[in-house]
Write a protein that binds this DNA or RNA. Structure first.
Lengths: 169, 169
DNA sequence: CTTGACCTTGGATTTAACTCTAAGGTTTAT
DNA sequence: ATAAACCTTAGAGTTAAATCCAAGGTCAAG
């Protein structure tokens, strides 16, 4: 690795920064195009050169992503970060809280999916029986959310596969 | 509304079916283009005509969507539904269970976001104080996940806004 | 006979965050 | 001197599920 020394710190080329922060070089170019992270300088041949400050900014972005912020929201956070004294805690907390509300909504929605899917799964024996009497399909065909368990009366011994149903009464 | 009578049932034009099932006509055309729902006939002038069977199929699609399936997955479910005897319960349950696993993963991810965001929110007073010492920004700047509470020492009386912090020790 | 509501088609646009391609320049090692 | 690994740019493609648009045909009411 070639270290290009600025006053007091290292300069990284795009690939080096990418490896260091476990993102792709493409991603860094994308962030630049969208105004999130512009390298502080360029080499004579036009290569992007990132300094320690840029690295910190990238880490800020990645941390914000890790807690669920979109790039648009991170752009807002960054503009506050660079001009802190003209913003209040209320502004920052507002961003966090509205994200929190959104995340809670998504969790609620997914929990509904989870419950419904679990109920469907529990009602089905999951065995090699024909799907002609499959509880899952029947539930999706009917307009009730009342799911019946299967009761396969088949040519083969279904005892191994109906225990799932039996256990639910 | 004009009812066009097929043998034994009604026929709906696209707008009628859309209203009845609370989707847009565009959505029905989209479903058709993607092979999920093709109207059983057309009028002389080329209008789509849906019969009761088509309505049932649409309801199946909407129920499957309501439990979290994507249209690609619903396509699979529909192909099983139309040829039940050649599929086993295991096939159907497999679809449900892999969706369930995916939903559980997404819930886990969102729960991480939720916890992180809640911690950030709790650490910030959310008041009119300058964001210069905002705990949220500081947490995003630093590489620890240890979040410190704010301790604003300001010109104005911050007692109302620091109680959030005080309560956390 | 015209107005307005409805329908047709093909194709473009939206959102988010990349990811990839092509065509070419730079650097470093051999 | 040349190959490998790196970099540049502009721009296209990806995914999901619609949603919108334009230009035009159909149909019932007044």
């Amino acid at each position: 690795m070639v270290m290009i020394v600025e006053q007091g710190g290292f300069m990284y080329r795009i690939g080096e920064l990418a490896k260091q922060c476990e993102v792709k070089a493409d991603t860094l170019r994308f962030y630049e195009k969208h105004g999130l992270l512009t390298p502080s300088s360029r080499s004579d041949s036009g290569y992007r050169l990132y300094n320690d400050n840029d690295v910190e900014r990238l880490r800020f972005i990645l941390r914000a992503k890790a807690v669920g912020f979109t790039l648009a929201e991170i752009t807002e956070l960054l503009s506050i970060e660079l001009d802190k004294s003209n913003w209040a805690c209320a502004d920052v907390k507002g961003l966090v809280d509205s994200k929190l509300a959104y995340v809670n909504e998504r969790i609620t929605e997914l929990n509904h999916f989870q419950v419904s899917l679990q109920r469907l799964s529990d009602a089905c024996c999951g065995g090699p029986e024909s799907a002609e009497h499959c509880s899952i399909l029947e539930a999706l065909e009917s307009n009730t959310d009342n799911i019946k368990c299967e009761n396969h009366a088949h040519d083969h011994d279904a005892s191994e596969y109906t225990k799932n149903c039996q256990s639910k009464g």
